[in-house]
């Protein structure tokens, strides 16, 4: 343990000029060999574990994407993507989610600066923009079902609702998590465990935006093009 905590403050060997500037990323790991540095800090272990979870979530989404891509032509005489997709609505959703991701990034900056007020403001903006995205998606879904183009109409629409709905469920869970984090920061402040949860949440929220990029490209833009 003392090796782990002393490692960063240990003086670099010698007074060679490249000691600090020639090795800014500490590839030589200073004077302490890598086997003697102890476990990585919890902050890194937790975020890395959550990163692995997010990648497994991407793998799950790839299954939905594959199903959609296979079934996109199986319309059973029903509407095709070009018939039902409204690109202006999708553009609005994209802008809302992108701005939401940006606001989440600003909340991360406020967290690093330990500014509770700016954290709450940025998280509230993230929540409002995310809720706006969800509202657009709910409008689209109810509109489609009202037109008789629900998930039961064709295999294409089943795959569409499963894929886009799965993303929507993720955004809903993210919104619940987001409000929980606002409450936790309000009640407990920027404690170490709260900081780790905020870091995981921002990873989650940015990852959802990455999924949406794949989604609006593959589903909406390629579908509406009548390709």
């Amino acid at each position: 343990m003392s090796a782990a905590t002393d490692a960063p403050s240990a003086p670099t060997r010698g007074d060679r000029p490249e000691g600090r500037h020639g090795d800014p990323n500490r590839l030589g790991h200073g004077t302490v060999p890598i086997s003697e540095q102890g476990p990585a800090p919890k902050r890194i272990v937790v975020a890395y574990g959550f990163w692995i979870f997010l990648l497994s979530d991407f793998v799950m989404f790839s299954g939905f994407f594959a199903a959609y891509a296979v079934l996109v032509g199986a319309t059973a005489g029903g509407p095709t993507g070009a018939d039902v997709f409204e690109l202006p609505l999708v553009a609005a959703e994209t802008v809302l989610l992108l701005l939401s991701s940006f606001a989440c990034g600003l909340a991360g900056v406020a967290t690093v600066q330990r500014s509770t007020r700016w954290f709450q403001v940025a998280m509230a903006a993230t929540a409002v923009l995310g809720a706006g995205f969800l509202a657009c998606e709910l409008y689209e879904f109810t509109h489609l079902i009202g037109e008789g183009a629900g998930p039961g109409r064709s295999a294409f629409l089943s795959a569409f609702f499963a894929l886009v709905g799965c993303h929507g469920v993720h955004v809903t869970i993210g919104l619940i998590w987001l409000t929980t984090m606002m409450a936790q920061v309000r009640a407990k402040g920027f404690r170490d465990d709260i900081l780790r949860r905020i870091a995981c949440f921002s990873l989650f929220w940015h990852a959802l935006d990455i999924i949406w990029v794949a989604l609006f490209t593959v589903v909406y833009l390629m579908g509406a093009g009548g390709a």
Binding site: A4, N25, A47, W51, V112
Partner: peptide, 27 residues
């Protein structure tokens, strides 16, 4: 003791110490 350890670690700035960065962490 382990709590104290994690506290010391978490107040450390990125890019120092173990030569790792957590995903999502700025330089």
């Amino acid at each position: 003791m382990s709590d104290e350890h994690s506290h010391v670690d978490d107040t450390r700035s990125a890019g120092q110490g173990h030569g790792h960065a957590a995903p999502g962490e700025q330089e």
